[in-house]
């Protein structure tokens, strides 16, 4: 019996150390999820519990009032709720699909072929991982304005196609997971580049495109787009919900309900494809 337990444990591990690790992780995990737990609890609190003194962390008598209020408020607004939802769903799906296709095409040739300029291009993309939206926000607006995309959804969708993170992760994953011999063999059999890409490369890198999907959905689902979009019927869901939540202290419960609604999609997608994400991230290193 004892031998079995010993065998199951990794070498070089002490029981005391394990105990320490579990405590440490437990404490910090609690710290990480405090705001989420608090939000979920607040979303189910009736009005009198939200303004209770002293404030309470957990809900006593959960109700759906806040969610009902949210629906009523959205029903009363000038543009129907479904329109905001449609805008955001459209931005998320179109942006993600375009990003996956375009980034994989680029990553495929960068990973599997040598041609003048390929290394330089990839190095620039890696540098671009460091950009934050704010740093280039001014010239970006000028570019979008020049293209005539101000106040259209394209101002949010098209730039998302070129997110550097996607190309980077895809290229690193292809480097590690598509054997060169396979491509050689396909070429010998007379397959053209496009066929090699769609029939051989893409099915092999399914975990990578699911990972690109996660990062893209995370990004676009929460995109407010307020810099570019001002027409009411084109506003995104986070934008519209933000307006409702910003209406002051009386909406504190509704604001919490809003946060819960917005949180569901990214968290659910992440949980579903988690193992694929981890597999892709295993190849994400930057070599110098």
């Amino acid at each position: 019996m004892r031998k079995k337990i010993l065998k199951r444990r990794k070498p070089n591990r002490s029981w005391g150390g394990d105990f320490g690790i579990y405590t440490f992780l437990g404490l910090f995990a609690a710290f990480m999820v405090i705001p989420m737990i608090y939000t979920i609890n607040s979303a189910f609190k009736p009005m009198d519990e939200i303004f209770l003194y002293p404030p309470r962390f957990f809900v006593r008598n959960p109700t759906m009032d806040n969610f009902q209020d949210l629906l009523v408020l959205l029903g009363k607004s000038w543009v129907p709720f479904s329109r905001y939802l449609f805008n955001t769903v459209f931005i998320t799906i179109a942006g993600t699909a375009g990003h996956i296709i375009i980034a994989s095409m680029g990553a495929f040739v960068l990973s599997k072929y040598r041609f003048p300029g390929s290394m330089t291009f990839f190095r620039i993309v890696v540098t671009a991982l460091m950009f934050n939206g704010y740093v280039t926000s001014i010239p970006n607006y000028l570019v979008i304005a020049r293209l005539g995309w101000v106040d259209t959804v394209w101002a949010v969708v098209i730039p998302a196609f070129a997110a550097p993170m996607g190309l980077f992760l895809m290229k690193q994953y292809m480097d590690a997971n598509i054997p060169d011999v396979l491509i050689e063999a396909a070429k010998v059999d007379g397959a053209k580049e496009w066929a090699v890409f769609t029939r051989i490369a893409m099915p092999l890198v399914k975990p990578a495109w699911l990972t690109l999907m996660i990062f893209s959905v995370q990004n676009l689902w929460n995109a407010r787009g307020s810099t570019f979009i001002y027409s009411e019927q084109l506003k995104t869901l986070p934008y519209a919900l933000g307006q409702i939540a910003a209406a002051g202290i009386a909406r504190a419960g509704v604001a919490a309900a809003v946060s819960v609604v917005m949180m569901i999609v990214p968290v659910a997608t992440f949980i579903i494809v988690q193992s694929n994400v981890m597999e892709t991230m295993a190849t994400s290193g930057i070599k110098d």
């Binding site: 375009i102 095409m105 680029g106 040739v109 390929s118 291009f121 993309v125 196609f161 190309l167």
Partner: peptide, 10 residues
């Protein structure tokens, strides 16, 4: 040609 769509947007 493969890199063009991403390259141009990037």
């Amino acid at each position: 040609l493969f890199l063009a769509p991403y390259g141009i947007l990037f």
